[in-house]
Amino acid sequence: MPAFSLEPDQVAWCAELRALAAQRLRPLAEKGEPGHVNRPLVTELGRLGLTDRLFTSGALDLCLMRESLAYACTEAETALALQGLGAHPVHAHGTPAQRDRWLPGVRDGSVVAAFALSEPGAGSDAAALALRADPDGGAGNATAARADGPRRWRLTGEKCWISNAPEADFYTVFARTTPDAGARGVTAFLVPADRPGLTGTGLDMLSPHPIGALHFDAVPVTADDVLGETDRGFRVAMGTLNLFRPSVGAFAVGMAQAALDASLAHTAGREAFGGKLKDLQTVAHQVAEMAVRTEAARLMVYAAATAHDDGADGVPQRAAMAKLLATETAQYVVDAAVQLHGARALHRGHLLEHLYREVRAPRVYEGASEVQRGIIAKELYATVEARP
């Protein structure tokens, strides 16, 4: 399928999702408490089959879901995305026992997942994470000194800016199992929230999402909790991010489109200077620029997602480009929409006031814009160096 063209059934599905978001999900979102997991909203996502679709669809479908939901209800979009981000490592790298234990609940919306990578000293530089997984030499760990490595560990340290923390039911946690090994010494663990020594606190952030810090005080984990292979957890993290980065761009495109449509309606109806705002050339040109940038970002997101689904070369670069362009574009479009609306857009509860708070975070999480530029440059120079 060409990256620039959606099939009629996909277009119809997106329209259906926007209607569901407005009619069934937004009322639940409005009843939620900012900064906390909205479990009725997550349950409804499961009832509608959207959380199940996280694991049965490709990157493009994920982008279409996130864009469509973001257009009408950013809280629903975020709740869906966080379920996917936290549970995808289990789906892709978990053992049959891990998948059977946790994924049915994620699919039906009864279990909340979280992706715990960032730390106070290791945000964008994920390879610098310091959460320790120390071999547990206590009773029952007869294999601690065997050649194939320990079978039990104790997690000690902190995670920060973790979405759905501290209210998730389980966490995909990335910890250092080999000191001073950079990205090669990290292991991914599935850690249930009720493990002894695991506590958390909520953080009061600009956007209304549930975000918190996690504190690990010798939290016990075993080989049965490992996702993938010991010391290969960075691959788990990057594989997850390569899938979800284009869809972060889709989230941004959905917000940009909502801001653009609001601006079209406002400028077409607003009387000013003896006519409609849209009759002012500066206003018309501003709206045109917003539309061009939004469509360009959308096409790059679709192209990156299609490349991922097709197993094409250069997926990390394409994903980084899509996230970079789309999130920076959404920031521009939402800001321009606020300017076109004037003071009314600054009222608490106005759509654009909401979007203005929401649009800032995607330029930071899952790799800040500067990190995306670094990935792009690295991939470009690697191509040059590979030439004969």
Rank of each mutant, 00 (worst) to 15 (best):
S247A: 15
G185V: 09
G249H: 12
T230S: 14
G200L: 08
V219K: 09
P179S: 00
K159G: 10
W161F: 14
F189L: 06
F170T: 02
R235P: 04
A252H: 14
A223Q: 06
R154A: 01
D194L: 00
A237I: 09
G200S: 13
R235H: 13
H209Y: 15
I162H: 13
A188S: 06
A183N: 07
A213C: 11
A188Q: 01
R154G: 03
D169V: 00
A193H: 10
A223N: 05
D194S: 01
A168I: 08
F189S: 06
T156F: 00
V173C: 08
A252W: 10
V248K: 12
A165P: 13
Y171L: 01
L241R: 07
V221P: 03
L190T: 00
D224V: 01
G233N: 13
R184V: 03
L214D: 12
F170C: 05
R184W: 00
P220G: 10
A183V: 12
D169R: 00
E167W: 10
C160G: 04
V186W: 12
P208K: 01
D169T: 02
T230R: 15
A237T: 08
R245Q: 15
P210D: 09
M238D: 13
G254C: 04
H209Q: 14
F234V: 01
A168G: 14
T172G: 07
F216W: 10
T187E: 09
L227C: 05
T156R: 06
H209S: 11
E229F: 12
F251C: 07
N164Q: 14
P220V: 05
T177R: 11
A213N: 14
P179E: 02
W161I: 08
W161Q: 09
A252L: 10
A250D: 12
T240K: 01
V191N: 11
D169K: 04
T201C: 01
D225E: 04
G249K: 11
T222I: 06
P246Q: 10
V226E: 04
V219C: 11
G228V: 07
G212D: 11
D204I: 03
H209T: 11
G157P: 03
L206F: 05
G202E: 06
L241S: 04
T199S: 15
D231M: 00
H209M: 10
S207P: 02
L206G: 05
L155Q: 12
P196H: 09
G202A: 13
T177C: 14
R176E: 09
G233H: 14
L243T: 13
F189P: 06
L241F: 08
T222G: 15
G254Q: 05
P166F: 14
A223Y: 00
N242P: 03
F189N: 08
V253K: 07
T199R: 15
I162Y: 13
F170E: 03
F216K: 05
D217H: 02
D180A: 04
F170Y: 07
Y171V: 03
P208C: 06
V236F: 05
